[in-house]
Design a protein around this nucleic acid. Structure first.
Lengths: 230, 230
DNA sequence: TCCCATAATTGATAATAGTCAATTATTGGA
DNA sequence: TCCAATAATTGACTATTATCAATTATGGGA
């Protein structure tokens, strides 16, 4: 663990407010590791051994059942994942795989649990982190149940734009087939939905989506912070 | 708050391990209230004022968007709901409505937050509660994305049986139209899926489902604790 | 016990989404 | 720069799910 990595971690909501001794204690036993692309970091059904913090690269959370597979989320730096399985001492519900070469900091769960007990600020931060994770999946489920696939895509594009300062051009952060899986549709259907939305305010060229008429796109998406997030 | 209500709350995972003074302090400002059926307790988009504990009756969590509506979960005694919105100080993502006459204990969020800071055992329990809620919705999303509607119904029936000591006769705990919404389908489709499953090991008479051939039903549902819960 | 409001079912049809196969783009390495 | 592997798109078709309308069943009060 280098000094500047420590500092980046320290800025995370989860670690920002914890006491310095607790933080330093955790950092001493933490280790950073660089993984190649497409590496399975976590397999669903196994038990948590480390809390993961992604420092560089990107990681996909996915789930499998009966030969089917779906992407449940994509994690970008700097953030933690699978805190819930660490707290519960129960098996992972999702697998995690690097999408590209990624640097990950690993914190042994036993030490994390000790730190949680010792440091009320850390505990409060973990609670907020868990509450946010909970809310993310409530939103995901609402999105799936209340919108059809074209509406989900429209909402996704608007939300990406919003995350980027309301820029009129959005560059999709992942391959379309991954995005399709995340949005709960097939790649073929994503393609057709994109085409359909070209009659509703967007223009598409490869990974770049230009929002030509925001109002028309919003009329399809009907954006809602209680689904799309703030 | 009567003494026996206090005791019932005290047995909940969230309150079981907290220190007695913290618990008693919370109970002093808590108040129990009985609500009629079909009463909207919480409206999505509003801010949390009370942590809710259902002591008797049942409550439905639902979400609305653009004129559409879906049931996200059903809460039975004795358990808490909307802890996440309390911790986050952010708006509710779901509404809550009594399904029948229900008794609910209300704990002002401000006091809950103070107790969380003061009592590490309570904080740890809250963390576990949030982690479990998180996992519930991960499972819900996996169920929606990986299974089709008949498979979801089959899995639901098997899970209900499992919850009831593997009894061969399951009595649906809610109206079919509510179950349909929870499972992400229309009532008409639930009806048709029930009929389809009659060729796969079940017999249905009104709200009673008899599992005649568990193996055949399981062949459709492919039960998985990582989706259906333990 | 009967009645009636409401829930559940059924059939017909439409909308939505998935599958398969073929073609066209794209992109990262030699 | 080109080439090959992979991703994306397209078309035809199928499967799944929703909608609408009509009918039948159910269960809680008078």
């Amino acid at each position: 663990m280098h000094q500047d990595e420590k500092l980046r971690l320290r800025r995370l909501p989860l670690f920002r407010e914890m006491m310095t001794p607790t933080f330093d204690g955790l950092m001493e036993i933490a280790y950073a590791q660089t993984f190649p692309a497409q590496l399975e970091l976590i397999r669903q059904g196994e038990y948590a051994d480390f809390l993961h913090v992604i420092v560089e690269g990107s990681v996909e959370l996915h789930a499998m059942w009966n030969g089917r597979n779906t992407i449940m989320g994509i994690v970008n730096p700097v953030s933690t994942f699978i805190l819930a399985a660490c707290v519960c001492e129960e098996p992972y519900l999702m697998s995690a795989r690097t999408l590209e070469r990624s640097q990950i900091v690993l914190l042994p769960v036993a030490d994390v649990r000790v730190a949680l007990r010792q440091d009320p600020d850390f505990a409060m931060a973990a609670m907020r982190e868990l509450a946010n994770g909970y809310r993310t999946f409530v939103r995901h489920a609402k999105n799936l149940k209340l919108r059809n696939s074209t509406e989900r895509l429209a909402a996704y594009i608007l939300h990406q734009s919003r995350q980027n300062d309301d820029m009129d051009t959005v560059t999709l952060p992942v391959e379309k087939r991954l995005l399709a899986s995340h949005l709960g549709m097939t790649p073929e259907n994503l393609s057709r939905s994109m085409k359909a939305l070209q009659g509703h305010g967007i223009a598409v060229r490869a990974m770049r989506v230009k929002i030509a008429d925001r109002a028309r796109l919003a009329a399809v998406a009907v954006p809602d912070p209680l689904i799309d997030g703030p």
